[in-house]
Simulated scan of single mutants.
Amino acid sequence: MSEGGALSSTNPTFEQDGIDVPKRAFITGITGQDGSYLAELLLAKGYEVHGLVRRSSSFNRGRIDPIYLDAEAGERLFLHYGDMTDGVSLVNLVLEIQPDEVYNLAAQSHVRVSFEMPEYTASADGIGTVRLLEAIRAAKLDCRFYQASTSEMFGATPPPQNEKTLFYPRSPYAAAKLYAHWMTVNYREAYDMYAVSGILFNHESPRRGETFLTRKVTKAVAAIKGGHQDILMLGNIDAVRDWGYAKEYVEGMWRMLQADEPTDYVLATGVGTTVRDFVELAFQHVDLDWRDYVMFDDKYERPTEVDALIGDPSKARELLDWKAQTDVEALAKLMVDADIAALAEISPPDPR
């Protein structure tokens, strides 16, 4: 089987009994940052979108609720209860939905938390992927499968990292994702499934969870500027990451499933930035000196650190015509602005 190739002329509709029917996409992790952006993208392209939602005592749908306000798009968005640790629910949903495309974005995705919950992380991120692949295989669906892999799988391997770089995971999260990655490759080769892994480097947005580094920083900048917070506690600020804009990266996910042949791709900007530099950019945007507000706390350090992740997206640029457009400075600014706007909605500005 050849790798990659030109994008197919796949249309978001197909003909069934003489009627144009929208393509169906099934997104696990639809309530997350990537899931919500991907849902918007696919709905804009005319898809019918189905999403997996975990049952909990409190609602966690803030990122996708606005989609329902769009009457036309909301009519093509359907949510289903299920869980990546429950294989039966996945089998039933795949049989019910009969998707044309499946995007597996669900995960326990916080690296630091994975050290505290290694077994759950392995079950949700690693075995959960196999449960979903088996559900598709058992249903004998002719669909295309996207697996959300991660740059964390490279771990201790020095940059730049591309699709041929050796993996060296340095956390339970990375190890679980690596298992899911290789199982996706295995199902592609063993069962001739159209299954791809997108190895995405750090991608952020105003929808990023508040416990993740970049959002923690920009939310704190907004709060400090508004007089609602005094300091920001951080761990290792010397780590280097390749930060891009999540809204652009979900376009890359979709493009991977439109290619003629399945293969794996790195999505990245190709530019490395230290945590210190990101922090400085965020504080500079509101005319503050970060050194007056940032303090070190070793509880935020990982047991095993990943020093530098910088991706080489050449393959995606060549085969998918995909390229990151938003640089880290613009990303920091748009995230700070969004957090300032969000804070203004709930708290009046400090008169100081």
Rank of each mutant, 00 (worst) to 15 (best):
F26H: 10
H80F: 13
S56G: 14
L77N: 05
Y47T: 00
I64H: 09
N92Y: 13
D17Q: 14
N104Y: 09
R24W: 09
N104L: 13
E48W: 02
G32L: 03
S89I: 02
N104R: 13
D100N: 09
H80K: 13
I27A: 04
G46H: 05
A73G: 06
S36Q: 12
R24Y: 09
V49D: 10
N104P: 11
Q108N: 11
G128P: 04
G51Y: 03
G87F: 05
D65W: 08
Y81E: 02
T31L: 11
E101T: 10
G35R: 04
A122C: 09
Y68H: 08
A135R: 02
G32Y: 03
R137N: 09
L141S: 09
G128H: 00
G74Y: 08
S58E: 15
H80E: 00
G82A: 10
L141K: 00
L93V: 08
V130W: 10
L132P: 00
Q147F: 10
I27W: 00
P22G: 04
F59E: 15
K140M: 13
V49Y: 00
L90A: 02
T28K: 01
V111D: 06
A124I: 07
G51C: 03
N60Y: 14
P22L: 02
I127W: 05
A107Y: 07
D100G: 09
I30A: 03
I97N: 00
E134F: 11
Y81K: 08
F115G: 05
A135G: 11
Q147W: 08
T121V: 07
Q33K: 03
M117D: 14
F115W: 14
Y103M: 11
Y103H: 09
A25S: 12
K45L: 11
M117Y: 15
S58L: 12
L38A: 02
G51L: 08
I19P: 06
Y103Q: 04
A135Q: 05
Q33S: 03
Q98M: 15
L43S: 02
L38C: 01
R61Y: 12
Y120N: 12
I64G: 05
F59P: 13
L141T: 06
L133F: 01
I30G: 01
V49T: 09
E40P: 07
L52V: 08
A73Y: 06
E40A: 09
A73E: 07
D83S: 04
R144E: 01
D100T: 05
S123Q: 15
E134C: 14
D65Y: 08
F26N: 08
H80T: 09
Q98C: 15
V88Y: 12
L52R: 07
S89T: 08
R63L: 04
G18C: 12
F59I: 15
Y81D: 07
M84S: 08
L141A: 04
L105R: 04
S89A: 10
I97L: 10
G126F: 07
I30D: 01
N60G: 14
L93R: 04
T31P: 06
E101Q: 14
Y103I: 10
L43C: 05
G128K: 02
Y37F: 11
Q147T: 05
Y146D: 02
R55H: 15
T121M: 01
P66Q: 07
